[in-house]
Amino acid sequence: MMDFDVVAFQLLNGLVWGLLLALIALGLCLIYGLMHISNLAHGSLFMLGAVLTAYACNTLGLPFWGAALIAPLVVAALMLLLDRVLFTHVLGREIAVSILATAGLLLVIDNLVLAFFGGEPASVDAPLDGAVELFGITYPSYRLAAAGLAILVLLAVGLFLRFTKYGLFMRAVPQARALAAATGVPIARVNALTIALGGLTAGLAGALATPITGAHFQMGLAILAPSFIVVVVGGLGNLGGTVAVAIIYGLLRGLLSVAMTPTAAEATTLLCLLPVLYFRPRGLFGGGA
């Protein structure tokens, strides 16, 4: 029964990780869908959320939940600023412009964090230190709480898109940008909101991950491949597909972790998903263009 325990533990880990990944990929997917920008610096926002949370907890002495609230807001504010100085200027231009600009942004954010917060990994104590019995194993309660929060936020974003005015705008604009503008939809504000929401969710994923993985300036690069592959395999711009593939990715990685080191499990998961793109170049759920 020992083996089953390990498998169940790793699968739960994978599920938690998949949900956090879904939070990150959500913003990537929304920004791509709305503005046709692939933000290469998106992983760095996740990293920034984690590093800021660790800094707020360890250096400023804030309680974890306070830090986890503030850090995503700071990342969202940064994204609002970047919307003004960068994203507005790449909108509607050749793909290369936005890709190269955000590749530069990735280097800027990662190295600014390195300069200000140093290269040492930081760790944060989980705000809940108990464990619960689940499927016959004991599992850290914080990880379940983080997974629950991630689900809540994913649901909240779904409801926001479905039932609010700006949610409707965010669904309408990607379908026909010029038509939305001619209908009076405040495009610039919708873009800014989407970009800020992307920063908020990626930053929140970073904050929630900190007690599990710690914080380090290179964790943005580490998340780059997983977050992009779930967006592409999910069918570029397809929100439901992206979330589903993120969870599949997490579970697969968890399963592989039973038998190999985390790096090897991550690499193998990526290598498993890459061939999907050969057989389904538009992704699993990418029907249209």
Binding site: G104, L107, I109, N111, A115
Partner: peptide, 12 residues
């Protein structure tokens, strides 16, 4: 930091 900044500025 400067390399990234330069690339972003050039691209735009």
């Amino acid at each position: 930091i400067f390399v990234g900044l330069l690339l972003a500025v050039m691209a735009v």
